[in-house]
Design a protein around this nucleic acid. Structure first.
Length: 942
DNA sequence: GCAAGGTC
């Protein structure tokens, strides 16, 4: 069997179709992985790297004394499968193969991925021939050629890739650990460092520094207003910017009539049609439409997977000869763009435009399928339309502008004006994303005089350089060789999720800046794009076999060791610098009570709140939703009223939740509960707020005297307020318990969310579980519960209530559980039933039952039932069992009627005992009679 | 828990 290994599923599928020719290809899923078979050949697609490099065992503990961050430099490195299903299928197929062909992409990473497959195959099949197919495009001719001239794997090329893997891992992991530990940050707050991310972060941070230290320079612009054929014209002084104010003033002074046309220049300007899309230019164009880089990439991948556009990860800006452009146009004719397609066909340029990079892996991004807006939805359609229009634009003629430049003289001062008119629309007709700004100038002739209507001197300032937008950053990264087409957008995403940068355009956070500054001081190498360039040069040497992988990695190791010499010597200083800034990032603003800083605080990474840095002297705090709703971060926006920074909760894969001003939100969300206090008035609420009391617990935790003084109210009113607040707090507690109960017991349905049920229950006056237990059926139906649910819910609620009452009476949990299982539900049952019966049913010793019964009844204000000792019960039991016709089952029934021994049986009223026990009255009578007979015998004997 | 690179 011939096994062919491709880099990805889609390649495997396409290669199979091309090699199979007229043969039928069988697509089968094996262990969740697609395979393609024909004749004696099987193809399987990898998922890029299916193994990853990692340190050998023993390096997982970051805080290990023996294995500090530096030890990672010399730690052993192993490859671990990350795609287990693919790895095991590959090995299963490899065992049966008598030829394996590696058909991964034709680049360094592709060779490395191929070598990884090679090693996995070798591990299970020592002898099989493993060859390499190299093709620069997946087209029938290329593929057939490649498979007719199979070669060996290029181990030098793969080794170059491995050196990158190892160097990235050891630098990234060791520095990440070092700086995280130094700044005492763990879990979700680690500070990451890497060959690509750190220079990128440094660019953003450096730009911010430039902006901050920018000193604006004043300059002046001189313009002149005139008019020609009724059209107002604004002429510019040809000097441009006047840096010297006096020069500008002098030039203005010299500007006098007559204003004469000295030169008229007309020309034609070619406005070239845009080049085909590669990943970067697509992301840039999408950025102008409001897409973030990561989002544009996500949508593009989606469109690709569904067959609407070609592979979105490409560096190629030249359509390959194998791409049938007419066919693409044919597909687009069936879409909403048919009008544009028809226009393009009529005006088509002889050759499509071409960009600078013609790489061989994938064609430029172009449409591959027809779509409708309804099919795609707004966002995907927007990107699809962009790709379609760009494709059409690359086949359209250039646009042409008529340009005009008119020069003037005014008293010796030179002025000028330029204009442009779009003569031929060309590609702009089908690609309307950049506006064509026309400026028309009426025809002028040399020597002609125009009036001076005004001379204006405008003062301006030089502007700082702009912050990076995501797409501008991606362009710059590409220019510097940082990252790849597939990873650049992810790197930006990483910087955002580490909270190193925020916003678009991108601004560094304080932590981001602190990390960059520390690294620049002590580990400069990792913050510079040069590291990548050096690495690439070394990789080139490995490819050419002038150096070995181990030599390059060894050199890098030595360098990293010397970086650590510096880092370790300054560990405390580095940590302190970063931590100082972190505090600032957590600070929200002044405490309304004491004026010290309020800070975002997290407890055990689960709950979070805003507390006063003056704690414990000042206990002011604002509660925040739990971390599961998102981690609280500070925004730059400040509440005008409270001078507090706005708060946002951020969570992976979820929209950010903006809380806004935490105090405004705190006040608003607690106002409703404060109004539950019966004697609450608007005026009182205002006074509470004025003295920084915003919640019901704030009132409960104050003394009446204190309240009276702070709110200027009478002491009786204050006492009542505290009392009523306590009641409300109790109500809230019971309601929240009820809510929890409902969440656990009632499955939510459409139009019946837990919140809605709880709301309706509160409206119906059901405030706690006990109330639910005794709620009327029709009321619960109103709430949205079915009859069955109502039954079950009420029973459960009653059980909970009973259990609670017994526990409150002091009964131990174990016994309560036994009683409840035996059907003894509450104090009433203890009052009504004989302890002997309860003991028999529950298995609790009778004396214990008596004790429990007394406690339960007295706490519920009920009469205490009779008591009985274990000894007497046993004696009575013997007496009763001795009677004819009485066995264990009857015994329990008798206990239920309070009959525990011969004496109590003899004294019983047969009718009543029968009703209570369920034993026929006749049988009871006969039992009583037999006692009498026994009695007689007894008497005779004595 | 760490990187960057494939791919989904």
């Amino acid at each position: 069997m011939h096994l062919i290994v491709a880099e990805k599923n889609i390649s495997a599928r396409r290669i199979a179709a091309m090699l199979a020719g007229n043969n039928h290809v069988t697509n089968k899923k094996e262990g969740g992985v697609d395979t393609y078979a024909f004749d004696d050949t099987v193809l399987v697609g990898l998922k890029g790297h299916v193994v990853e490099v990692d340190f050998v065992e023993g390096y997982t503990n970051w805080r290990s004394e023996e294995r500090p961050p530096r030890s990672l430099i010399d730690a052993g490195i192993v490859k671990r499968p990350t795609e287990k299903r693919i790895v095991s299928l590959l090995q299963k197929l490899a065992k049966k193969a008598d030829l394996v062909t590696i058909a991964t992409d034709f680049d360094t990473e592709g060779e490395l991925i191929g070598k990884e497959a090679y090693e996995l195959v070798r591990a299970v099949n020592k002898d099989v021939r493993i060859l390499r197919a190299r093709f620069s495009a997946i087209t029938p001719q290329e593929i057939k050629r490649a498979f007719s001239e199979l070669t060996e794997l290029d181990f030098a090329l793969a080794a170059a890739g491995e050196s990158r893997q190892i160097i990235d891992l050891m630098w990234g992991a060791s520095l990440t650990r070092f700086i995280s530990i130094a700044a005492r940050r763990g879990g979700a707050n680690i500070l990451s460092v890497g060959r690509v991310q750190s220079p990128t972060l440094a660019m953003i941070a450096d730009r911010e520094k430039e902006i901050e230290s920018f000193v604006p320079q004043k300059y002046w612009m001189l313009t002149l207003d005139t008019k020609k054929d009724g059209t107002p014209l604004e002429l510019r002084h040809t000097h441009g910017r006047f840096v010297d104010h006096d020069d500008a003033l002098a030039a203005r002074k010299r500007t006098t009539e007559p204003l004469t046309v000295t030169e008229v220049k007309e020309g034609v300007k070619n406005d070239r049609a845009p080049t085909p899309f590669d990943t970067t230019s697509l992301l840039v164009a999408a950025g102008r439409l409001g897409f973030s880089a990561a989002n544009a990439m996500r949508v593009a991948e989606d469109l690709y997977m569904n067959g609407f556009i070609s592979y979105p990860r490409t560096d190629n800006t030249v359509y390959p000869a194998s791409l049938n452009l007419d066919e693409v146009l044919g597909v687009l004719k069936t879409t909403a763009f048919s009008g544009d397609v028809a226009w393009v066909e009529r005006h088509r340029r002889p050759e499509p435009t071409r960009g600078k990079k013609s790489s061989t892996d994938h064609p430029p991004i172009h449409p591959t399928g027809a779509a409708t807006p309804a099919q795609l939805g707004e966002e995907r359609w927007k990107l699809y339309e962009l790709v379609v229009r760009r494709f059409l634009a690359t086949l359209s003629p250039d646009a042409r502008w008529l340009t005009m430049k008119v020069n003037f003289d005014a008293g010796g001062e030179p002025y000028t004006v330029t204009g442009g008119q779009l003569k031929e629309e060309g590609w702009r007709r089908v690609y309307p994303y950049s506006e064509a700004a026309e400026r028309l100038i009426p025809a002028c002739t040399v020597g002609e005089r125009l009036p001076i209507l005004g001379v204006n001197l405008e003062e301006k300032e030089t502007q700082p350089p702009p912050r990076y937008t995501q797409s501008r950053l991606i362009q710059t990264m590409e220019e510097l060789g940082l990252g790849t087409k597939s990873t650049r957008h992810e790197v930006i995403g990483k910087l955002v999720s580490r909270r190193y940068v925020q916003g678009n355009p991108l601004r560094p956070t304080l932590v981001g800046r602190a990390v960059v500054e520390s690294l620049e001081k002590h580990a400069d190498t990792i913050t510079r794009p040069d590291m990548t360039r050096t690495l690439e040069a070394s990789m080139q040497q490995i490819k050419e076999s002038t150096r070995t992988r181990d030599d390059v990695v060894g050199e890098s190791r030595a360098m990293l060791h010397s970086v650590f010499d510096d880092l370790e010597a300054h560990e405390e200083q580095i940590g302190a610098e970063i931590m100082d800034r972190t505090v600032e990032e957590r600070t929200v603003g002044p405490c309304p009570v004491c004026g010290k800083d309020l800070q975002i605080r997290q407890v055990h990474g689960a709950s979070q709140f805003i507390g006063c840095s003056g704690y414990p002297e000042c206990t002011f705090n604002i509660s925040l939703p739990g971390v599961q709703w998102g981690k609280a971060i500070r925004l730059d926006q400040v509440c005008e009223q409270h001078r507090l920074n706005h708060i946002r909760l951020i969570r992976k894969g979820a929209r950010p939740w903006d809380i806004g001003c935490p105090l405004c939100s705190h006040i608003e969300s607690n106002a409703a509960t404060l109004r539950l206090i019966p004697h609450m008035t608007d005026a009182l609420l205002q006074r509470l707020h004025a003295s920084h009391m915003y919640t019901v617990p704030d009132i409960v935790h104050s003394s009446a005297a204190d309240l009276a003084a702070r709110l200027s109210i009478g002491s009786e009113e204050a006492e009542r307020l505290v009392q009523e607040a306590n009641d409300v707090l109790d109500l809230l507690r019971r309601r929240s318990e009820l809510k929890k109960f409902i969440r656990a017991e009632v499955p939510p349905r459409r139009g019946r969310s837990h919140a809605k049920i709880a709301q309706k229950m509160a409206a119906a006056g059901i405030d706690d579980i006990a109330a639910l237990g005794s709620a009327r059926v029709d009321v619960l139906k109103e709430v949205g519960l079915s009859d069955e649910e109502t039954q079950g819910l009420r029973a459960k609620a009653q059980a909970i209530r009973s259990e609670r009452r017994l526990r409150e009476a002091g009964l131990p949990a174990v016994s309560v559980k036994k009683y409840l299982e035996a059907g003894i539900a509450g104090p009433e049952d203890f009052a009504a039933l004989h302890p002997a019966y309860i003991s028999a049913k529950s298995g609790v010793r009778v004396e214990t039952v008596c004790k429990h019964a007394e406690a339960a009844c007295s706490s519920a204000g009920l009469d205490t039932p009779p008591k009985i000792t274990q000894k007497r019960l046993e004696k009575g039991r013997e007496e009763l069992l001795a009677l004819p016709g009485i066995g264990e089952p009857t015994l329990e029934k008798l206990y239920r009627a309070g009959i525990v021994d011969a004496a109590s049986l003899a004294a019983a009223d047969p009718e009543r005992a029968s009703a209570a026990s369920g034993i026929p009255a006749a049988k009871i009578r006969s039992c009583i009679a037999s006692i009498s007979a026994e009695d007689k015998k007894e008497r005779v004997r004595t």
